[in-house]
Deep mutational scan, measured.
Amino acid sequence: DRIFMTRTEALEFLLKAHQTAVDKIGHPSHKQTPADHAAIEALDRLLLDVRARRVDQFQINASAAQIIVTD
């Protein structure tokens, strides 16, 4: 599946995904793992790359739809 978004929409989408990941590892019942921190770092890099126009398409994980940034 493909989803087309403007750059602004894609950045909002990534910010929400980032916040969800941060909230998940901050929850008291969740045991933090290196994979959790790696996922947040990957989202940080992706946010910067989309914002800087170095990336025009991405996929958060293998089961997610491919996001295509349109400007």
Rank of each mutant, 00 (worst) to 15 (best):
D1P: 12
D1V: 03
R2S: 07
R2C: 09
R2D: 04
R2Y: 11
R2N: 06
R2V: 15
I3C: 05
I3A: 03
I3W: 09
I3P: 01
I3Q: 05
F4G: 02
F4S: 04
M5P: 00
M5Y: 02
M5Q: 01
T6E: 02
R7K: 03
R7C: 03
R7M: 08
R7E: 02
R7T: 04
R7D: 01
T8I: 13
T8D: 13
E9D: 06
E9Q: 13
E9I: 03
A10M: 01
A10G: 01
L11E: 05
L11A: 03
L11W: 04
L11I: 14
E12P: 00
F13R: 02
F13K: 02
F13M: 08
L14Y: 00
L14Q: 00
L14G: 00
L15S: 10
L15I: 10
L15Q: 12
L15T: 11
K16D: 06
K16N: 08
K16T: 07
A17M: 14
A17H: 07
A17D: 01
H18R: 15
H18K: 15
H18F: 15
Q19M: 08
Q19I: 09
Q19D: 05
Q19S: 07
T20W: 10
A21T: 06
A21H: 08
A21V: 10
A21S: 04
V22H: 06
D23G: 10
D23A: 14
K24I: 09
K24S: 08
K24T: 09
I25G: 05
I25N: 05
I25D: 03
I25S: 06
G26S: 15
G26C: 10
H27S: 14
H27T: 09
P28F: 02
P28G: 10
S29V: 07
S29W: 04
S29D: 14
S29A: 12
H30C: 05
H30N: 09
H30L: 06
K31C: 05
K31F: 13
K31R: 08
Q32I: 14
T33H: 08
T33G: 09
T33M: 09
T33S: 13
T33I: 06
P34A: 13
P34F: 08
P34N: 08
A35I: 06
A35R: 07
D36P: 03
D36T: 05
D36V: 05
D36Y: 06
D36K: 03
H37N: 10
H37M: 14
A38R: 10
A38C: 05
A38S: 08
A38V: 10
A38G: 05
A38I: 10
A39V: 13
A39N: 10
A39R: 09
A39T: 11
A39E: 14
A39F: 15
I40L: 12
I40P: 02
I40N: 01
A42I: 13
A42S: 09
L43P: 00
L43Y: 03
L43M: 05
L43I: 13
D44R: 15
D44P: 01
D44T: 15
D44H: 15
D44I: 15
D44G: 15
D44W: 15
R45M: 07
R45F: 04
R45C: 04
L46A: 01
L46H: 01
L46R: 00
L46K: 01
L46V: 02
L46P: 00
L47A: 04
L47G: 01
L47M: 11
D49A: 13
V50H: 01
V50W: 01
V50P: 00
R51D: 05
R51M: 14
R51K: 13
R51N: 05
A52I: 06
A52V: 05
R53H: 14
R53I: 03
R53A: 10
R53S: 11
R53E: 10
R53W: 05
R54K: 11
V55D: 01
V55N: 02
D56R: 13
D56S: 15
D56Q: 12
D56G: 09
Q57V: 14
Q57G: 06
Q57N: 10
Q57R: 14
F58P: 00
F58H: 00
F58I: 03
F58C: 01
F58G: 00
F58K: 00
Q59V: 07
Q59Y: 11
Q59A: 06
Q59C: 05
Q59F: 09
I60L: 12
N61Q: 09
N61F: 11
A62I: 09
A62G: 15
A62Q: 10
A62K: 10
A62C: 06
S63Y: 13
S63A: 11
S63D: 11
A64P: 07
A64H: 09
A64S: 14
A64V: 09
A64L: 09
A65V: 15
A65E: 08
A65K: 09
Q66L: 15
Q66P: 07
Q66C: 08
I67D: 00
I67H: 02
I67G: 01
I67P: 00
I68Y: 11
I68L: 05
I68V: 11
V69T: 02
V69C: 02
V69Y: 02
V69D: 03
T70K: 11
T70S: 10
T70V: 14
D71M: 05
